[in-house]
Every structure is written in C-alpha cells, then in structure tokens.
Nucleic acid binder design. Structure first.
Lengths: 140, 140
DNA sequence: AAATTAACTTGTATTTTGCAAGCTAAATGA
DNA sequence: TCATTTAGCTTGCAAAATACAAGTTAATTT
C-alpha cells in the first residue's frame, strides 16, 4: 500500500490526501448507496475497477479508519467490509457530488430521481442511510 | 491535455471523472476560498503543485466549463482565471470536505474556526462567497 | 473429488506524475 | 534603452501509479 503523505494543513488538501482519487469514493458509494460489502461485489460495479487497485484502496481505506473488515455471517470464504462512522460522515460529500452532477452532467434517470429526493430532504436521507449502516448492537 | 473518459452514468463517478484527482479541487479552493486567480498564484500555494500539472489541470477545468481565462485588468502579461457558475456550485462539496476534515483530521486552527462558521451558517457562507465571485455586471 | 467462488497477489505494459530546465512576451528598473 | 525580472507556460526525463492478464490459496458447492 502506498503511504499517504500530507501535503499541507488545509482541510481540503488533507481530505484529498485520503479520498482524492478516482476510486476511493466509488467504493464508499458502493457500500453506502448500493449496499455492497464484499470484494467481488465492488469488483462487479459498472466502473470496472482493477483487482489490484481495489485491494490497494481497501487496505488504504481500512488504514485510514474508514472501513474495517469483519467476518461474513454466511461464509468464512467471504469478508464483509463495513463502513465506520468516519466513513458514514462522508455521506454529505457524496450527496453534494450527486447534486452537482445532476445539475451539470448527463446521468441516469434513477440518479436524477435520487437527486430530487436529496433536494427535498437531505437531512432525512442522511439519517436514513446512516441509520441503516450503523452496527446494530444487541439490546439488553 | 488528457481526454476525460466517462466510466459510467453514476453521478458520483461522473463527477470524479472531472474533479476526482489530488489537484483540481485545490485549484478550485484557491479561487473560491483564497481569492487567488493567476497561474503564479496557484503555483505559490502550500501544496506545491508542479507547473506542468497545473497547466494541465487549468486546461481541463476550462474545458470542463468550470474555469475560464480572462484578460487581467492590470496587465496583459497576466491572465485572470475566473470561476463559472458550474465551478461555484462545487462550493458545497468543498465545505463538506472541510467539515469532515475538521471532525477527523488534524488541520490548522484557522481552518477549525472556518469549520465552526460553516456549521453555524452554511447557507449564509455559500451565498456570501458565491456573491463575491459572481461577475459583477455594470448596472445601467 | 472436481469444479467453482472469493479474495487476493504477481508481472508487465501503459499512463500519469514530479522535477528541473528552458522558452517567449510583457513589464520593470537602472 | 537595454538588461533583468515576472508571468505563463512547454519540454524532457525519471519515478510512481494504473490497467490488464494471469496465477494463487482457502473455502464452498456440485
């Protein structure tokens, strides 16, 4: 895995040091917006990430505390990739990117519909998705 | 200039096809948050972008309709880089990145202060900055 | 027991980045 | 006015990152 070097104390720069590449946010999108959580799931996404790059990004995101590996409940051949609070808190960034793309780029019809929902109730969507991703602790 | 290939119809992916690299958003930050607007201004930023990369990114961002070149009012040796509406509309993305960095990364004290202001009144800040960047047409 | 699936790793070609130097037109200073 | 400096790049090359194809290992399915 490549070592992250911090270019400055600027918050924009520091964030980009971690997630400022063409793939990291797509993995985060897969987990948060498409419910994917396995290696092959990520590999299967439309954008066709190369397998070595995926392995690298997963290691990076785990190192950065954005993802963590867990044992898969259905099979021990599988690994379940879970997003942390630090990762969930990138959701507003994703949503703003979606709103911008909706305004200026050609995107799919269902993406446009989602953008409309974000505009209607951004906070509601954030809470809904955050809640669905949280590690549900057993109540006692 | 490298040609942008669209990887999918996903809005996150499409946005990253344009601004998903380590430098583009820093140039946009320089213009919107630091009031820089010349080639040497951008070159002077803390992160020390290489001059050929800067030239490439400026061409890209202009091609993407995010920036445009204008003649500098003080000198014709200088070129004034201006941000378009399409670029200004990336401000919410920048602000969310700042909020995330403030929450999870070590950043400068003044950046923390700015993050606090964003939390207090995000819309107000967006309007303030947007307004300050708009091309002021002469009233008649 | 053989074939398939899941999660990677390895090798290599191609592309992108980083760094240093050079270039041209405009502005400035002596 | 003439030399120097400034502004905005371009070029060449080495180093790093990415893409693509193939191979590996353990677990699971047939």
């Amino acid at each position: 895995m490549k070592i992250i070097r911090k270019r400055s104390d600027c918050p924009v720069s520091s964030a980009l040091d971690i997630i400022g590449d063409k793939w990291s946010l797509l993995v985060i999108r897969d987990i948060m917006l498409s419910g994917k959580n396995t290696y092959n799931g990520f590999l299967g996404s439309e954008e066709k990430i190369a397998t070595n790059i995926l392995a690298d990004r997963l290691a990076m995101l785990e190192y950065a505390g954005i993802l963590r590996k867990e044992r898969h409940p259905q099979s021990k051949a599988k690994i379940l990739y879970r997003i942390s609070k630090k990762g969930i808190d990138l959701l507003p960034v994703l949503l703003e990117l979606i709103l911008w793309s909706d305004k200026y780029l050609p995107i799919s019809a269902q993406a446009r519909q989602f953008a409309r929902e974000i505009r209607k109730d951004k906070e509601g969507i954030i809470k809904l998705i955050s809640g669905s991703l949280k590690n549900k602790k057993k109540r006692r």
